[in-house]
C-alpha cells in the first residue's frame, strides 16, 4: 500500500526500443522524413493541379 510503480522490468522508461538509441534516432529520422515527404507530395500535387487548370 502507498507505493506507486516506479520501475517495470527494472527500468523506468519502458517503451518499444527504449534500450536501443540507434533505433530511436532512426525513428526520429523517419518522422522528419515523413513530414518533409508530405510537403514534397503537396508541392507535387499543387504543380499538377495548377497545370491541369491552366
Amino acid at each position: 500500500m502507498g507505493t506507486s510503480i516506479t520501475t517495470w522490468e527494472n527500468v523506468s522508461a519502458y517503451f518499444t526500443f527504449a534500450d536501443s538509441p540507434m533505433a530511436l534516432v532512426l525513428f526520429s529520422i523517419g518522422v522528419a522524413g515523413i513530414v518533409v515527404g508530405l510537403i514534397g507530395s503537396i508541392m507535387k500535387h499543387e504543380k499538377e493541379a495548377f497545370k491541369n487548370h491552366k
Binding site: A13, F15, L24
Partner: peptide, 13 residues
C-alpha cells in the same frame, strides 16, 4: 531530443 528516453513513456516521469 527526440531520441532521448525522456521523450517517451516513463513510469517515473
Amino acid at each position: 531530443l527526440p531520441w532521448s528516453t525522456s521523450m517517451g513513456p516513463d513510469v517515473q516521469d
